[in-house]
């Protein structure tokens, strides 16, 4: 159980990093939120049963791969900054994660 917990934390950190890698403001915020919400669900599933936990982990790993691929593709193209990003207060990605 302890092992799976550290695995989840690792997967969570990697997923958030991948989400943070998106250049487009909207994508970045969306995937950050989505990752957070998904992992809350996953954690509640871990206490339900081993099989559900395994499935959730497999799904999480799959999604991490998708995120990493897509954020890389996203970075290959030029982007127009949103109005929000021109405000230095909101310029960095996760500074205000709850916005």
């Amino acid at each position: 159980m302890a092992g799976s917990r550290t695995q989840i934390i690792k997967l969570y950190r990697d997923s958030l990093r991948a989400a943070r890698g998106f250049e487009t403001y909207n994508f970045r915020k969306y995937f950050y939120r989505r990752t957070r919400d998904r992992f809350r669900e996953t954690l509640s599933k871990v206490s339900v049963g081993q099989v559900e936990a395994e499935n959730a982990m497999a799904e999480g790993r799959h999604e991490l791969e998708v995120l990493q691929r897509q954020s890389l593709v996203n970075r290959l193209f030029a982007h127009n900054r949103t109005v929000l990003e021109s405000d230095p207060q909101y310029a960095s990605g996760a500074r205000r994660p709850n916005l």
């Binding site: 550290t6 934390i9 969570y12 950190r13 958030l16 990093r17 809350r40 996760a94 500074r95």
Partner: peptide
């Protein structure tokens, strides 16, 4: 909780423009 802690550490990373390796972040 542990997930929030990960988020806070990531926010600190972002604030100071550093990348904290996993074992240090833990």
């Amino acid at each position: 909780d542990s997930l929030d802690t990960v988020e806070v550490v990531m926010a600190i990373e972002e604030e100071f423009s550093v990348e904290i390796p996993d074992d240090e972040a833990d």
